[in-house]
Nucleic acid binder design. Structure first.
Lengths: 218, 218
DNA sequence: GAGCGTTACGCTAATCGTAACCATG
DNA sequence: CATGGTTACGATTAGCGTAACGCTC
């Protein structure tokens, strides 16, 4: 039911070289075998993939579709192989972590240092991204762990509470906010704010809270 | 060099059922064959994937890594198969289009109607997303065409100009802006605006232009 | 001894390369 | 007639199931 990898690789080469013969050579098999493998692929899919002519092959519509899938599939397979090579070489693998700005600067460095000390064989790759991007990368399998701000849309992902982040307001001495005995988020909204870029999830979160309070971030 | 799909499928089942025998049965092959296939996989990767015990199998660290890769790989393979089945059935495939709000409401419906009339065998799937999300989906191969606002980060993607969008300012009669003979973007920035959500790319674009003019959106 | 995984041994079936065969510019 | 793809045939080999075996609870 499922097609085999080698044939897909052959197909990709044939499609890109516009030639079965070249593809066969590149795949280190005979032309006859190549022809049959493609034919088998077509029979399996019940569709013609290549338009044959005496001076090469061209993709059909179905071929174009398959080419896209096959290429990303092969790329993924290479990632897998690389990972497994890491394991074979003793490294226990790569842990890809995506963190937002606050985690990156606050808690993460310490935690990562501890983890790295206890697991010297695990290679850590850390990237800083906005929460929304982090979720996308996680869903695409491009990363293993993401640290995002509360309230992010995390469909299909497992979530755990990591740390609590405290936000502070900085104002000039004598500013109206400083006069207050107890400052609530609501009070802050009455003033102009200098904060993060508007794309940051932190800001989205603040904006959502502002809406709840029937005010707006300005 | 590359592992075969069937073995990966077997491995996934073995990992999830914690049993080689069950996995063999589920894969419609004998236990002996299953054992050998896993052994071959391990030999190929030069790593042990499963910890054997008299009452089943458990994943090793390398096995956990492989399981993740194998599962997403198999999912992708199913997508591919589905697509090819579409082609076999005469449908020329699915064109997945991601559009932002303005394209969705302005130009796209007409263009899609025309295309659908001329290509009845192509199934169209349209989704509305913000430009940044659209780019992510395209890069992940989850969509074929995206319509985004100018200035989006489109690394690794081909871009073409689609349509020009005209923005309008709506104000009460007698508003300062209405008095102007000719209104420039710069002039608009001197006033408070009610526009789209701050996450929308359109807003990012406006904000960038505002920065160029040394003003700010408020 | 019941359950589970592994190894040994024939056998079948898939796959290959060589070579002869078509089609087109 | 040179180029590129296809089909035929014999040989190789990779993969299967049956069956015997080893280990642990």
């Amino acid at each position: 039911m499922l097609p085999d990898i080698d044939s897909l690789g052959l197909f990709v080469r044939a499609a890109e070289l516009h030639s079965l013969s070249k593809a066969a050579e590149a795949s280190h098999i005979g032309v006859a075998a190549a022809s049959r493998r493609i034919a088998l692929l077509e029979h399996r899919f019940r569709t013609t993939l290549l338009e044959r002519s005496p001076r090469g092959v061209e993709l059909t519509a179905a071929g174009v579709s398959l080419l896209g899938h096959a290429k990303t599939l092969l790329v993924h397979l290479n990632h897998m192989n690389a990972d497994m090579n890491d394991h074979a070489a003793g490294r226990k693998g790569v842990l890809r972590i995506i963190a937002n700005t606050s985690a990156m600067t606050e808690y993460l460095p310490d935690d990562l240092a501890t983890f790295a000390r206890e697991n010297p064989d695990v290679r850590l790759v850390v990237e800083e991204r906005w929460s929304a991007e982090a979720v996308q990368l996680l869903q695409a399998g491009e990363a293993d762990i993401g640290i995002v701000v509360e309230g992010s849309r995390t469909e299909g992902l497992e979530t755990f509470a990591y740390r609590t982040d405290r936000l502070a307001v900085i104002a000039l001495p004598g500013h109206a906010l400083v006069q207050l005995e107890q400052m609530r988020f609501e009070d802050v909204l009455d003033h102009d704010l200098i904060a993060l870029e508007s794309g940051a999830s932190m800001m989205r979160l603040l904006a959502e809270q502002a809406v709840v309070l029937e005010k707006s971030l300005s």
